[in-house]
């Protein structure tokens, strides 16, 4: 076993897949000489050269469009967006093109593209650098959505994403880049659509994503209730069976994420569970998500715009009273 960061895990995945498969290449802003603004692609230029580490001008539409066009014609591009907020420049390429080309072509076109994007809050970067947009992509048929919460998952899921023949939106939380974890010495992949039960428990099911997995686990560790914590890891495909099984056991469901609650990930998970397992509930299911507000700058406001540990504790206490 060895200790690596989330950033190093992502870099290892890119490195290994680029070594195995000549058709894998990187495209994005600041990714070559500087190694990416968050350092994920550091030293990959030295190893693979400019042909495979394509540094672009600030042209998100062209980055994603070129990646999609290259994917349609036999390559496996991994595009990097510095902030997910900037994918809004490339929503045509992502939503109108990448997601739909296979279907519109009756299955004749294949689009094996990975779009890696950094997202999250916690660094006071305000409304245009702090969005978490996984729900938007879940709403679009044809996009897989991956949201790793730790180094082990980051590496294993990114390798799977690169090998997948479909467009994959890969969302990295910027507060997780420095997260460390013991991982195996050899390499691994993680299949999509398999949630992980991070901690088992019998009183309440807490489904959490990305950074909130850590908040939920910390709460679960010191809590007098026996909390089960599930990390779905991929939102499309979503392992609803693992969540359902847990809810049938606990009778209580809380979904926690930083992305906005309105029309969000939690709302969808609760829809899916409620439609089929309504009778399993001992109490109303609940979502703790981001507030319906553009992310504010001031620390005190930012902190209160996303669920914190105290909110999770309070909500669990209330749900356990019922």
């Amino acid at each position: 076993m060895r200790d690596i960061t989330y950033t190093a895990a992502l870099r290892e995945a890119l490195f290994e897949e680029m070594e195995i498969d000549e058709s894998v290449f990187l495209i994005g802003e600041d990714i070559a000489d500087f190694g990416g603004v968050f350092g994920v692609t550091k030293n990959l230029l030295q190893k693979f050269g400019r042909k495979r580490v394509c540094q672009t001008p600030i042209s998100e539409g062209a980055i994603i469009g070129a990646a999609v066009g290259a994917a349609m014609t036999g390559l496996r591009p991994v595009a990097e967006l510095m902030y997910v907020d900037f994918i809004l420049f490339a929503m045509d390429q992502t939503v109108n093109q990448a997601a739909k080309l296979r279907y519109m072509s009756g299955g004749t076109v294949k689009v094996p593209v990975v779009i890696r994007a950094q997202q999250g809050c916690g660094t006071c970067e305000a409304a245009q650098h702090s969005q978490q947009l996984e729900a938007w992509f879940m709403h679009t048929p044809g996009l897989k959505v991956v949201i790793p919460s730790n180094p082990y998952d980051a590496k294993g899921l990114l390798k799977t994403a690169i090998r997948d023949d479909n467009p994959v939106i890969f969302l990295e939380h910027r507060m997780l880049y420095s997260a460390r974890q013991q991982v195996p010495d050899d390499t691994w992949t993680i299949p999509f659509g398999r949630a992980e039960i991070k901690k088992s428990g019998k009183d309440i099911t807490v489904v959490a994503t990305s950074l909130c997995v850590h908040k939920a686990l910390e709460v679960a560790k010191d809590n007098h209730f026996d909390i089960e914590v599930i990390d779905p890891r991929t939102l499309v495909p979503l392992d609803i069976d693992t969540i359902a099984e847990s809810v049938v056991k606990t009778g209580r469901l809380l979904v926690v994420h930083e992305s906005i609650a309105q029309c969000g990930v939690g709302a969808e998970i609760i829809r899916l569970i409620t439609e089929q397992y309504f009778k399993a509930f001992k109490t109303a299911p609940k979502v703790l998500g981001g507030a319906y507000v553009p992310m504010p700058f001031a620390k005190v406001l930012e902190e209160n715009a996303v669920p914190q540990k105290r909110d999770i504790i309070e909500t669990i206490n209330n749900m356990m009273k019922e």
């Binding site: 290449f25 066009g69 036999g74 591009p77 093109q97």
Partner: peptide, 19 residues
């Protein structure tokens, strides 16, 4: 989409150059 193919065509050309 009006102009929807513009960036995709660039990608196909990149792919041709790459290969």
């Amino acid at each position: 989409v009006v102009g929807g193919g513009l960036t995709l065509a660039v990608g196909a050309a990149l792919s041709a150059q790459y290969r």
